Amino acid sequence: MAAPLRTVAGSGGDPLAEAIELTKRLKLPYIRRSLTDLIPTAKAQRWDPAEVVRVLLAEALAHIR
């Protein structure tokens, strides 16, 4: 697996912490709230990364309608 192109300072290399920080900076509260529940489920069920992105974007869209 390739290393990420960029990392967020202060995340300590933890991808979930980094994703949460990025959603704060990008002002994506619905995605941020979903991350902590979704990521463990996705890992346990071995979801394709594209499926994770799809679910997160669908969650954000559901709240702006």
Score class of each variant (00 low, 15 high):
Pro29Val: 06
Pro29His: 06
Arg54His: 12
Trp47Gln: 13
Trp47Thr: 10
Arg32Ile: 11
Tyr30Thr: 06
Gly13Ile: 01
Ile39Met: 03
Ile39Lys: 00
Glu21Ser: 03
Pro49Met: 06
Leu57Asp: 14
Glu51Lys: 15
Tyr30Phe: 08
Asp14Thr: 04
Pro49Trp: 07
Arg54Asn: 11
Glu59Tyr: 08
Thr7Leu: 00
Leu28Met: 12
Val55Ala: 09
Ser11Gln: 00
Trp47Asp: 12
Ile31Lys: 05
Glu59Gly: 11
Pro15Asn: 00
Arg46Gly: 12
Val53Leu: 13
Thr36Pro: 04
Val53Trp: 07
Pro40Phe: 08
Val8Gly: 02
Ser34Lys: 13
Glu59Val: 15
Thr36Ser: 08
Pro40Glu: 06
Ile64Pro: 09
Thr41Cys: 09
Met1Val: 03
Tyr30Lys: 07
Lys27Gln: 13
Lys24Phe: 01
Tyr30Cys: 06
Val52Ile: 14
Pro29Arg: 07
Leu38Thr: 12
Arg65Asn: 11
Val8Gln: 04
Arg46Phe: 14
His63Asn: 15
Leu35His: 05
Met1Thr: 05
Gly13Phe: 03
Thr36Trp: 02
Gly13Arg: 02
Leu61Ile: 14
Leu28His: 09
Glu18Tyr: 00
Arg25Met: 10
Ala58Leu: 11
Arg33His: 09
Ala42Phe: 07
Pro40Cys: 08
Leu57Trp: 12
Ala17Ile: 02
Trp47Glu: 15
Ala19His: 02
Lys27Phe: 12
Ala9Gln: 03
Ile64Met: 14
